[in-house]
Design a protein around this nucleic acid. Structure first.
Lengths: 216, 216
DNA sequence: TGACTTTTGGCAGCGACTGACAGAATATGG
DNA sequence: CCATATTCTGTCAGTCGCTGCCAAAAGTCA
């Protein structure tokens, strides 16, 4: 009696208000929206999918969609906040003795588990960014800028300088982001066959002595 | 009789179809839109001005506005195509013997006349980009990406490499763009008092040996 | 259970942007 | 100078992303 399974599941739901059903429901809705969006974007394309359609697929109203994500682009990069948190932590963990660029490189290698966790989503993001100008623009202006901000903050701390005055943190971060962009493009074009982290690692290795304190 | 002046001006208009009245009218409309937009943006703000309002101020319909500019942001950066052309030419003029980053630096110094020509517009762009996320995003995703593309193409030519394979052109370009961004921010915050080109020059000087062929 | 807070849906609306079409302006050949 | 072909413009109607508002539903806590 397979129907039983559902019954049990239904009965399993505590009819009494559980302490944080709200939080659970919210994160479920959020995950549903991200999943629905990813599937629709993958199947149909980015411009071709409306926010209403995504909301319908996740069984919420369009109004609710915009309570969870500020823009249509944001739902495609639903992993961003989490990833930036991990990047920040990875950067903080690097020993002070490391040279700036080496610290960035090592921190990104530490994100390997994140990359694997979101592998399919990353491939989709890269593919859509290569196809749709709106996605490309969002990636540059919001996602990559987010990464850059974290890197700049970490490097400014390390070098003990004000990043508004000393251009070096932003320059190193810009070079690193360029390397990451190249690696991501190569990875996407090869549909994820080479290891992503290895590609980034190799691209970052092409950044020369940049960031040595000896240049001060 | 000051009225005469107008009469003469009116009579001066050749009633016969001049060979390129169209082209003249088009460039006038374009210039009018840019000027009207700049004034409104400067007085009221970016989000606060609608495209219809800009079109009205330039005495055209909103539909016509969008025949001249693909987006509202584009009219604020109406000098972009012209500037990118000048940047490309300046890069091509650099002798092959120059090291990559030095060529970029020198090419940008050569744009001094462009910067002076569009000084007020540049200050406005920088100010609005610091205030309105939409402008900031457009600046990053479209304007700065345009500069970067030119620099990458020039460096790839110089180094005789495929920029899709070798990450160095994009890395050097990314570092240079970061330096330019820092300089632009400083220039904008100081309301244009220090010379813009000098600031960029100084920021670019902070980019270390990056781009030496010796790193190959 | 009942009062309180948070989340949701529906609606109405704004503004950026687009396709279609008809009329005005302009270029071109005779 | 005129007729004709070409290009540009305004108008209109429509789509879509996104927002404020309010009332209903769901969840929390005593």
């Amino acid at each position: 009696m397979p129907a039983r399974v559902d019954d049990v599941a239904l009965l399993d739901v505590d009819p009494r208000p559980t302490r944080n059903r709200r939080a659970a429901k919210k994160s479920k809705t959020r995950a549903d929206l991200i999943a629905a969006a990813a599937e629709l974007f993958g199947d149909i394309g980015y411009d071709e999918v409306t926010t209403t359609r995504i909301a319908d697929a996740a069984d919420v109203s369009q109004r609710t969609f915009f309570r969870y994500f500020p823009t249509k682009e944001a739902v495609l990069y639903g992993d961003m906040d989490e990833t930036l948190d991990e990047l920040r932590i990875a950067l903080e963990r690097r020993p002070e003795t490391e040279r700036p660029l080496e610290a960035v490189r090592a921190a990104i290698v530490d994100l390997r588990s994140n990359f694997e966790r979101h592998r399919d989503l990353r491939l989709l993001q890269a593919r859509l960014a290569a196809t749709y100008p709106a996605v490309s623009a969002y990636s540059r202006a919001t996602v990559q800028m987010g990464w850059e901000r974290e890197i700049i903050a970490a490097l400014a701390d390390r070098l003990m300088v004000d990043p508004m005055e000393d251009p070096r943190p932003e320059i190193i971060a810009g070079a690193a982001m360029s390397a990451i962009r190249v690696a991501t493009r190569q990875w996407s074009l090869q549909r994820g066959t080479p290891d992503y982290v290895d590609l980034i690692d190799a691209a970052l290795a092409a950044v020369p002595s940049l960031g040595d304190d000896t240049t001060t």
